[in-house]
Design a protein around this nucleic acid. Structure first.
Lengths: 335, 335
DNA sequence: ATGAAAGCGCTAACAA
DNA sequence: TTGTTAGCGCTTTCAT
């Protein structure tokens, strides 16, 4: 089928026009007659010409590839965003190199070095932990979801997120409305902007509903896993109990649900539970989980478009976006 | 932090040796004195030299990048394999471009063209549907999980899979052992090698246990989704019922479980259910699901190593591998 | 042990 | 409208 790839020079020889003209036709730059255009295009097709992207990249110093840095691609929520970003960029003829950091700074650093060596034209951080910024320089970058601690000063970066405070508030209001008074928040780490904002929104809503400042207990989980959720929920329950629990991630909530049921705490009768991200675990889990839904489609789409705008030198529509979220109510708060 | 990237030529000027020698030191080829080596390496470090991969790729006609083609990265099973592959390749200094095809032939074709234009040194198909082979040519390729219909003749490709017949047989034996006699298989499509093998293994085991040839009903789902599983299970149930159902994918099984419970069919008392892939949905779903477990770690690791072997001209350890699978028994078959 | 120089495929001045 | 040419950063003969 496909022997050696044919180069622009061979097309030039075949058609009898110069390589420059062939290049012009390929890139639709400069001028050329309708007639040569037709001849060249025919040859391009007949010989299955494919541009050598390495050569083009070397010459132009930019390549239609962006890096996507994500902590864990097996996390459904991240995967959905990543997929959306990839599809959107692909539609604009960009390829994406997806890099999984496992939340490890040194892995992220190596990935970034590699992306820079590839001369990628931009980097998308999906829920990126704020690590290897020094490497980024003036490279166009868009951050989805999590806010980096130190914005690279270049002014070339944007933050596309959801309204996490609102998400936390929605969770609190749901629990309060369903009669809960002894509230807990189980959040993932203490240094992740989104999870902190969820907690803050939750507490504020609780305060506004008249609860005492210290009425909301907070538990911090080092991992966003089902196992961690179970362990922490067990601890909380034995340490005195509660009637409403907000977990800043569905996986934690699923773990909590399991541990609580095991201990005889009926959901939603004895304890009501709210998760975050509205993943399939929330929909199909043992206890259908009330959860805060973020639009991954919108997030990914907007982030991809914004990154392209920065790359192409246009002014991005917005440097800081907070998309709305909504609550999906299920059995874990009584339907 | 990071200004313009420094080139090999600048390092040459800084150290006073020729670019050729710098290149030799970088790639550890040819000869050079200990002394120049030290001087060059110091400069490399001091000035944060990063090779321009486009230039290198242009010159050597090969780039340490492979494409990974996957139908749906939001599928946990595929994501786990993909992640494993990516990590393994990354450890060997290869980057991966992950391409999501959504099972669409034209999307796959465009991805493949792009990968070829990038001059990737190989392609990994994760559960690839057998489409755009004509494009592949002699490019090293490894197929994980699904068998392509037309093997590219190059002899440059391998198939790394699990023992799907065994998986089907394990499912059948479990159902039979737990007393089921009216068996159904719900499988994903009719043209996917793995799912066909699962069905075949299931039927064979049923036969060997003395069931009549036509005692196993087969239902084909066009999508591997929870919704499709629910719809087909409902149809099957109303069409006459069964007491044992094997779904070739967990998502189908989860959907089936929901639909059956809705119709008053208790699991596992009235109906026993086996899924496939042992995803988190099986572990944490409404009905803990007995499921066939494949080692995604092993699959990904082996596939990555094999692809590298082919790329680097070594003889791959095996052209056709079938890894063992095992059954994880949970409540859906009575624990 | 090291250097000079060619050239990978392409784009972008500059010329004609 | 088209052609000529330089050169992107790197590796790799071929000299020395």
């Amino acid at each position: 089928m496909k022997g050696e790839p044919v180069s622009i020079r061979e097309i030039s020889e075949i058609t009898g026009v110069s390589v420059a003209t062939v290049s012009r036709v390929i890139n639709n730059t400069g001028r050329f007659s309708k007639e040569t255009e037709a001849r060249v295009k025919k040859a391009l097709r007949d010989y299955h010409y494919m541009p050598n992207l390495a050569a083009r990249g070397l010459r132009t110093k930019r390549i239609a590839t962006v890096g996507v840095v994500v902590p864990d691609i097996t996390n459904e929520y991240f995967a959905r965003i990543t997929l959306q970003v990839q599809e959107r960029l692909f539609a604009q003829q960009y390829s994406t190199i997806i890099c999984n950091t496992d939340e490890k700074a040194d892995v992220e650093r190596r990935h970034l070095d590699m992306l820079l060596a590839q001369q990628v034209s931009g980097v998308m951080y999906v829920a990126g932990m704020p690590h290897a910024f020094d490497r980024l320089g003036r490279l166009p970058a868009v951050f989805i979801d999590r806010e980096p601690q130190a914005q690279p000063q270049s002014g070339k970066s944007c933050l596309i997120g959801s309204d996490d405070r609102l998400g936390g508030a929605l969770a609190a209001r749901e629990l309060l409305e369903k009669g809960c008074r002894r509230l807990c928040v189980m959040k993932y780490r203490d240094d992740v902007s989104t999870h902190n904002a969820r907690e803050a929104g939750f507490r504020q809503a609780a305060r506004e509903a008249g609860l005492a400042e210290d009425a909301v207990r907070v538990e911090i989980a080092a991992e966003a896993s089902v196992a961690a959720g179970a362990a922490h929920a067990a601890g909380l329950w034995e340490a005195g109990g509660f009637d409403g629990l907000f977990c800043t991630t569905d996986a934690l909530a699923v773990g909590a649900a399991g541990a609580l049921l095991e201990r005889g705490a009926a959901i939603p009768q004895a304890v009501k539970l709210v998760g975050y991200d509205d993943t399939s675990l929330a929909r199909y889990g043992a206890v259908p989980l009330t959860s805060v839904h973020q639009s991954t489609e919108e997030l990914g789409r907007l982030a991809a478009d914004t990154l392209l705008q920065i790359i192409e030198g246009r002014e991005p529509e917005a440097r800081r976006v907070q998309l709305p979220v909504h609550l999906v109510v299920r059995a874990s708060t009584g339907g």
